[in-house]
């Protein structure tokens, strides 16, 4: 009897302890998520009471808003080209920095450093670096006799410019890869070496499979992050030139906070959620083909 009572007390205490978190989650996260789902079927301009309009927002989105598709294309472009490049480069640098070399800690710091620069500062800095006339990049290209493109002023080059800028901040992924590399047991390499594997074979048949869960994680996070890309375009190009950097979330922001078209913006948010969800599911589905878990 008293034991039962004590148990009950413990349970109550436990709930009280997690209560702040539960409240925070339900008020600030779950609540708005549900609200946005409801608003997506409404005409809602924040100040006026919302009005139910059925599927109109979705209809308008899919059939009457060419900018939606353009912004989706821009965002997918960044994802399809930017994320693999990012992984390739951060993995390569992690591999290099995983060697026992002099000044290893120094180099790791140097490569990690850019990723702690706030997005806003980074954007302002890169506006100078990317300037076609006086920027560093075009200057370096000119040393090789290449006439650099107009970068942010050009419809074709603005997105690649953002991708290059993103590669500057690979430090975060690099650290994750480094941690993953530390976890590859030395005995596997030793065994491979004994079997006569060369450096490429050791990488291909030992490092890569052992690292595949890390790559998978970085891939998923990278895709989700890139699908929500916003800050750079907001600060550097305002979506231009010619909507070439109007990304999905930026378009959503315009609709929500500039036109007060919250219902429509909520519908857009849910469409993005479905895309992210589908892409992630597809990734999970495909992952058994290439991701290797040691515990299996």
């Amino acid at each position: 009897m008293s034991r039962l009572k004590k148990n009950k007390e413990e349970i109550i205490t436990a709930y009280l302890c997690v209560l702040p978190w539960i409240l925070g989650l339900s008020i600030f996260i779950v609540g708005p998520i549900i609200a946005s789902f409801i608003f997506s079927f409404m005409d809602y301009s924040v100040v006026l009471p919302p009005k139910f309009i059925g599927l109109s927002n979705y209809k308008k989105m899919f059939f009457e808003d060419p900018l939606l598709w353009k912004s989706l294309y821009n965002t997918l472009y960044m994802t399809v080209i930017g994320v693999p490049l990012n992984i390739l480069l951060s993995l390569s640098i992690a591999l290099l920095l995983n060697q026992k070399i002099k000044g290893e800690a120094f180099f790791r710091t140097v490569f990690y450093l850019p990723s702690i620069v706030p997005q806003v500062a980074m954007s302002l800095l890169w506006m100078w670096i990317l300037n076609p006339q006086i920027g560093l990049i075009n200057y370096l290209l000119s040393l090789f006799g290449i006439k650099g493109p107009m970068w942010l002023a050009s419809e074709q080059w603005a997105k690649p410019a953002f991708i290059i800028m993103g590669l500057w901040g690979i430090g975060g992924n690099m650290v994750i890869f480094l941690a993953g590399l530390q976890n590859v047991p030395q005995h596997l390499y030793d065994a491979a070496t004994v079997d006569g594997a060369n450096i490429w074979q050791r990488f291909r048949y030992v490092t890569l499979p052992m690292l595949s869960p890390t790559i998978f994680f970085v891939l998923i996070m990278g895709i989700i992050g890139t699908l929500q890309i916003f800050t750079q375009a907001y600060i550097m190009t305002a979506g231009g030139p010619m909507d070439s950097t109007l990304f999905y979330v930026y378009h959503l922001f315009n609709k929500a906070f500039r036109d007060f078209h919250m219902g429509y913006a909520s519908a857009m948010a849910w469409f993005l959620f479905i895309i992210v969800f589908a892409v992630t599911m597809l990734n999970l589905k495909l992952s058994p083909r290439w991701v290797y878990y040691e515990t299996e």
Partner: peptide
């Protein structure tokens, strides 16, 4: 042209 003018503007 607009591209050259805006890269000039960046300076």
């Amino acid at each position: 042209g607009v591209e050259k003018a805006s890269s000039f503007q960046g300076t």
